[in-house]
Structure formats: structure tokens, C-alpha cells
């Protein structure tokens, strides 16, 4: 790990004042479960690390009639234990509980889960987020791509590693970002973007912004997440599906279906949503939606198996709502 300065501010404002205009100036430290590994591997090398741990305002879960606001420093363990979250958003609790290492659950935070960097081994080995070879061409399609995207975008073949993002996106949640210019809200669905260069980040948060909370509207949608993993413990899932829908008069009147770990962002399966709309949520319709969810998948040489897994995840997430 390269040397860096350390500061531990007591307020978000103080933290923002310690950040710089580029990612090399400063990184935010929450649970440290990802940042320290990235620094040890020299994937990021900030001049300063700003620890958020003293900022108590980021550790709260607040419930109002219209919204549940979860502070960025709420840990995955706290999220799984919060009755106010479990009652309304089982989808989120399943996703948080899927982080199966108690050590990670006790220190990994909601903000850290959303801002963790992709697990793509080319990225982690120093080839950049777009994993570019010496010839300027992407390495993933011609390399070992068994865990990569089946819905790549441009030259981005990594998958979004966040456990919570698909569930939050399905629930129409937003992240709250605070910067010197003030506060802004970005739907989780739009929080991730495709970097144009290896220097850009894969999310819209800027170097001087702090992700302070996520806000989930209290819309009363039925919701569920289903994760498929190779090993039961410790690893990231291979494919997940998060669904949120409203059923009225025996028919689905609104549906949001997001896939995780199959694309550089949480992948919105619009064809699956269209399949569900206006029909009863039955076995036949669920099977059709699962097939529709993976329409247009463009698997690579080593990850064809993920197409079936993603479809199955959709089927099982929806089936759990019947």
C-alpha cells in the first residue's frame, strides 16, 4: 500500500472539505472491506483517505410515511436486522443477507456496497476498468470471461458487483449525494454509467461527493430477490434477480425486474416487465417473463451458463411472490 494522509472528520461538510477534484486526491473510507484491497493491489492510490466512521448522522435508518432513508454507513448486518426494513423490503434484506461473511456484513456498509469497484480480474490486476490490452482492444472477450457480463455495454464487460443495487433499483430508490454545491438525488437505476476511459469511474458520484443515504419510496410494492451462487458462502453471486410489483384485482399493474451480476449496471429487463403487465401472476406467465428477461443476451466465450441462471433467478424471485 502506498503512503497516504488520513483524516477522520465528524461531519459530512468537513468530509467534503477534505476531498479533492480528482480521484487521486482522496478516497472515502467506510467499512474498508473493498478500499483497502484496492489500495494494496495498487488499483487506486489516493493521496488522502477520509474516514467516515465518526459521522454518526450517516448511521441512521429513518422511516417517514413516504420514504425509508437508510444512512450510507448502516452496515449490511444492521440492514438485515432492521425490522422496519424487513417488513417493507424483504428484497433488500435477502440481498444484504446474501453477503455471507459475518466479518464483511459487520463492516461493509450500504454506501460501500453501492460504491465498491467491480471484481473483474482484469480490472483488479491493473488493466483498467475497461480491461484494455496493449493493442488498445478489450481483453475480456478473448480472455477468461466466465464471470463477466452477458449484457455487455460498449467495451464494458465487467459486472456491477453491488448486492443491493438491483433490489434498490427495482424499488425505485434513489441515492442522496452531497457535494460543495449541495445535495442531489439520483435514482439507483441511473447511478451507474459506462466509463469512456479507464480513468473514469463506473458511477456518477464525483470525487467531491459523498453518498450520504439511500431513500426508498414507501410504495408498498411486493418485492423479492433471488440470488444464484456457485458456493453457498463467501463469494459474490453469479446472477441475481430483484423484482418489485403491484397486483391489483388479480392482475399485475406495475412491474420492475432488475438483474444483477450480468451487466455493468443493474440490468432492467423491460421485456420481462412487459410480459408480466396486465396478467395474473401465475406459473405460466412467470416462465414467460423469465424467458423474456434474458432476450438479447450476448454471452461471451465462457459465460453462456449465466443466461440460464439469470432466467432461473427471475423465475424464482417472481415465484416467491405468489
Amino acid at each position: 500500500m502506498r503512503p497516504f494522509e488520513y483524516a477522520s472528520p465528524a461531519t459530512v461538510q468537513e468530509a467534503i472539505d477534505l476531498l479533492g477534484p480528482t480521484w487521486n486526491d482522496a478516497e472515502l473510507l467506510a467499512g474498508g472491506t473493498d478500499l483497502l484491497s484496492l489500495m494494496k493491489d495498487d488499483v487506486v492510490a489516493p493521496k488522502r483517505v477520509v474516514s467516515l466512521r465518526r459521522i454518526t448522522s450517516l448511521k441512521r435508518i429513518e422511516v417517514t410515511p413516504t420514504v425509508v432513508r437508510i444512512g450510507a454507513l448502516v452496515t449490511m448486518e444492521e440492514l438485515t436486522q432492521a425490522p422496519e426494513v424487513a417488513a417493507k423490503f424483504p428484497s433488500l434484506v435477502i440481498a444484504a443477507g446474501g453477503v455471507t461473511s459475518p466479518q464483511i456484513r459487520h463492516h461493509g456498509t450500504v454506501g460501500g456496497d453501492l460504491c465498491q469497484r467491480p471484481r473483474c480480474w482484469y480490472f483488479r490486476a491493473g488493466y483498467g476498468i475497461l480491461a484494455t490490452g496493449a493493442d488498445g482492444q478489450p481483453l475480456v472477450p478473448r480472455g477468461d470471461n466466465r464471470y463477466h457480463a452477458i449484457f455487455p455495454e460498449g467495451n464494458a464487460y465487467y459486472v456491477c458487483p453491488s448486492s443491493l443495487a438491483p433490489a434498490l433499483a427495482a424499488l425505485e430508490a434513489s441515492v442522496v449525494l452531497q457535494s460543495p454545491e449541495g445535495e442531489r438525488r439520483v435514482p439507483v437505476e441511473e447511478f451507474y454509467r459506462i466509463p469512456r476511459t479507464n480513468e473514469e469511474r463506473e458511477y456518477v458520484r464525483q470525487p467531491r461527493e459523498v453518498l450520504v443515504a439511500v431513500e426508498i419510496p414507501n410504495t408498498g410494492l411486493k418485492n423479492a430477490t433471488y440470488e444464484i451462487r456457485q458456493r453457498q458462502l463467501l463469494d459474490w453471486p453469479l446472477a441475481t434477480a430483484s423484482v418489485a410489483l403491484r397486483v391489483d384485482g388479480g392482475k399485475v399493474v406495475s412491474a420492475r425486474v432488475f438483474l444483477g451480476h450480468v451487466a455493468p449496471r443493474p440490468y432492467r429487463a423491460t421485456a420481462a416487465e412487459a410480459t408480466l403487465m396486465g396478467a395474473p401472476l401465475d406459473e405460466e406467465r412467470i416462465a414467460a417473463a423469465a424467458r423474456a428477461a434474458v432476450q438479447g443476451a450476448r454471452p461471451l466465450s465462457g459465460n453462456q451458463y449465466k443466461v440460464q441462471l439469470a432466467a432461473t433467478a427471475v423465475k424464482r424471485a417472481l415465484s416467491s411472490l405468489i
Binding site: 488520513y6 474498508g32 483517505v49 466512521r53 466479518q103
Partner: peptide, 13 residues
């Protein structure tokens, strides 16, 4: 009281 990876926490933190 929480199980912790000591490798993933800064001493100063």
C-alpha cells in the same frame, strides 16, 4: 464485539 478482518481495517481507524 463484532467479528472483523483485521487486514481490512486501518490501525489508525
Amino acid at each position: 464485539g463484532a467479528p472483523t478482518y483485521a487486514c481490512s481495517m486501518l490501525a489508525i481507524d
